[in-house]
Amino acid sequence: MTVGVAIQAVGLSKWFGSGETRTQAVKDVSFEAAFHEMLYIVGPSGSGKTTLLSMLSGILRPSAGSVRVEGVDIWALDENRIADFRLHKVGFVFQDYHLFNKLTTVENVAIPLILRGQDWNDSLKEGQKYLEVVGLANRANLPPSKLSGGEQQRVAIARAIVSAPDILIFDEPTASLDGDTGRKILEFVRTKVLTEQRCILTVTHDDRIYEYADRILKMEDGRLIGSEKGGAHA
C-alpha cells in the first residue's frame, strides 16, 4: 500500500536569536514520512512543532540538518527554486487560513494555480471542482468572510489541494473549530484527501482527532521523544 518515502529529515536543528537570547527551537530531529501516510506531530505549545513543519515544507531554513522530499535536498536549492518547490509540491493549510476576503471563494481556491501561471478561467474552473470536493460549490462567488469557520477551513483545504500537491501541511487544523466540525474535517481529509501519492503532515494538540492519524510523533522541548501508532490502525 505504501508507495515510498516522501520526506526524509536528517538531524534537523533550528536556533533562533543570538547571544543571550539564543534558543534552540528544534534539536536534532530525524524521521521519515511515507506517501499515503497521515502523520501527526504533537506536543505542548512551544515544543517546536511549527518550526519543524516549516523546515520540512520549504518555509524556514534549518540551522543544521537536511530535508529530502522525494529524494531532493530542498535546502540545497536557491530561493526561487524553493519557492517553486513550495508552489509545485506542497499544499498549506494555515492555522488562521489567510483567505482573501476581497476575492471570491473560488478565486481564493484557484490562487495556487494562478500563481503557477495557469490561465485565469481554467484555474477558476478547477477551483470550482475542488469546492465541490469540499462540499462548498454553492459558496463559490461569496467572499470567504460570509462563510462559517468550518466552511473557511474547508476552503483553505480546497486551496491547499487544488494544485494536487504531494505534501500537504496542516498547522493546528482544528484550533478554531468546535469538536464536531474538527472531527468531520479530519475524517474528510482522511477519506477524501489522503491519496497514494500524498503525504499529510499535521501539527495538532487536539487528541480528539488522533483517531485519523497513521502515526503520531511526539515532541517536547524541540526533541522528538517518541512515536506511536495513530487511531487509524487501532
Binding site: E79, F85, R86, L87, F92, F94, H98, P112, L115
Partner: peptide, 18 residues
C-alpha cells in the same frame, strides 16, 4: 492590511519579485 495575505501568497510559492 494585506500584508499577512501577501505573506501567505509568498508561503504558497509566490516570489518576492512577483
Amino acid at each position: 492590511e494585506n500584508l499577512e495575505k501577501f505573506g501567505a501568497l509568498k508561503a504558497i510559492g509566490a516570489k518576492g519579485r512577483e
